[in-house]
Design a protein around this nucleic acid. Structure first.
Lengths: 331, 331
DNA sequence: ACGATTTAGTAAACCGATTTAGCAAAACCG
DNA sequence: CGGTTTTGCTAAATCGGTTTACTAAATCGT
């Protein structure tokens, strides 16, 4: 017994497709379908367990009630948690989430974007590694509903939900300097991403504000494709250089470094302080001590959904830029 | 300049939709379209940046190249990581992932399942909280391509990718008993899930094997809807009861308990040992010491995808049941 | 009782692709 | 040169819904 379509139902009951469609969409009264016919149809629907084909609906309506969520890695807790909140917020509005992880690769990002667009998603929520790519440019020109979060390209006008980067990073580092830090290193993944660059700027600013020498050898870049090995090498460099504070530009790299410290330098975990952009629960008790900058995950999700909903409704793009304040967690 | 359809292209070039469609699908030669016409069409396609409407394709073909991934919580690292691997594996085969989090709620699970089916997903990968529900039963009757992982219902025949539960749990606990553990408590979320029940059985078995008394007061159930508060209460109970080992049935509850121990009982973290089904990186260095049972995440993802692909291809369901071996990590 | 309105419903076009069946012109064959 | 085959292309049906335009019968108003 294969699945029934509206046509089958109409035939079985000896009415027209139109009538069935009206009743299914609760337009029975409005369209003058008699109560009796309505009941017959509804009962039969119930009996055979009819389920509408959303694909057909989407084709006709031109809307899929699906949103694309494009991030570097959906299994990174930051993106996973925001994704989960977005899922819940959209669920209430009848939307669902199609996901894609870019691995910070431009090529994959563009393939995924095209895939999303081909599937007629109604909108996109994106943490892009390469905002100025052709596909995004072209979508932007067409006023395709999009909201960018976590990362921006200042030369690309769009809807952004961001978190202040430079100052909070500077202030977090200042706390360690106030407590006597003298030699401060930094570990980051690719600084090509503008938001990460701003965080690094905050680091530099903190140093110069305090008349500490900025030694570019203490700014180490980790290879995203081999995080563990690369971080191990760079962390070793910093420790041997005698730093008392290490700064990280995102949670993933901090978590890796905490693990590395405990595995390879357990005797040093008490002497060194970490500063992390992004927060994780484990920072509450892990060693080394971590001063972290917690991003307002819930707000990011909520604002992204709100703005996206707005641009989907009013086809005009407004290029809203919202900058949220992160929270400094000392410890 | 709105998006062009095949019809527009055909009109613009003065050929038929059929011809355009053939060329787009690389059937030009086979269908005797002259090289010249093919080139004209391909060039024009390129020029206007034509993108096919997947929704229309799907409606006609009856296949969406989309798989539904249904889990209790996509932001739980276990499901997030498996999801990510599945995403990558499916990506190579041209499939994409639609996600849904059930929050262990039967009602939400069934709404999501219907949503997935309505959207005509080609298959489902599911960690279900309620396998015997009506929707799954009905899908199973229709031979809908599905693979279940992480959780099973022994009375429900289906494709399962599982991990052995009882014995590994028993053996992990045995290690602590060998080292002198006397009073062993357990913390779990809902034991209605059969796999969790098996883990709990392993716990009971370990006790009886060693002639330790099984005290059901030491088996504490945490409310999934208020994990932190509830875990705090139950953990407190166990600690005050004087346990020297606490066993957990999944990573989420272990992570919560580690945090609670460090926050509320820092003086006890050295005296107590944790046993956790599921592993997390932090267990490598966190206190209390954790003996964990690491699930073979990569294999789970790979097998799920392989089996699903198979059942999608051969519409017959085979009800394969694969049980993988987890790995004990002592520390 | 007769025209106007309301009730109850339907046929057909449409969304954007794929695919079957078929047609006209050109090329081939003996 | 007449018949067959090949080449090059197209009209129309289809997937499963929604929606517009329309009709026939019943009811209403006077």
């Amino acid at each position: 017994m294969k699945k029934k379509s509206i046509k089958d139902i109409a035939q079985d009951l000896g009415v027209s497709k139109t009538t069935v469609s009206f009743v299914l969409n609760k337009k029975g009264d409005e369209k003058n379908i008699s109560k009796k016919t309505q009941k017959v149809i509804l009962d039969y629907i119930e009996e055979v367990g009819y389920q509408p084909n959303q694909i057909a609906k989407s084709l006709k309506n031109g809307t899929t009630n699906t949103i694309g969520y494009l991030v570097p890695d959906i299994s990174n807790p930051f993106y996973a948690k925001i994704g989960r909140m977005i899922e819940d917020l959209l669920w209430e509005k009848g939307y669902h989430l199609l996901i894609g992880s870019t691995d910070e690769k431009k090529e994959k990002e563009e393939l995924l974007l095209n895939m999303f667009v081909n599937r007629q998603v109604d909108g996109l929520i994106i943490a892009s590694c390469f905002i100025k790519g052709d596909v995004l440019k072209s979508l932007s020109r067409q006023n395709f509903p999009m909201v960018f979060f976590d990362r921006e390209d200042p030369e690309f006008l769009a809807n952004y939900i961001l978190v202040e980067n430079k100052n909070p990073m500077k202030e977090a580092i200042q706390k360690t300097i106030d407590k006597g830090a003298k030699k401060i290193g930094l570990l980051s993944i690719t600084p090509d991403v503008y938001s990460l660059k701003l965080r690094i700027d905050g680091y530099k600013q903190a140093l110069t504000d305090n008349a500490l020498e900025y030694d570019e050898n203490l700014l180490r870049i980790v290879d995203y494709n081999h995080i563990k090995e690369s971080a191990q090498k760079e962390l070793k460099y910093l420790i041997e250089a005698g730093v008392d504070v290490v700064v990280f530009t995102n949670n993933q790299i901090t978590a890796t470094a905490i693990w590395l410290m405990n595995m390879h330098y357990p005797e040093k975990v008490k002497e060194i302080t970490f500063v992390s952009f992004d927060n994780l629960d484990i920072f509450d008790y892990s060693m080394p001590r971590v001063i972290s900058i917690a991003q307002p995950i819930m707000s990011i999700a909520r604002q992204s959904v709100d703005i996206l909903e707005e641009v989907i409704k009013n086809k005009e793009s407004k290029n809203t830029r919202i900058e949220l304040k992160p929270k400094l967690i000392e410890r």
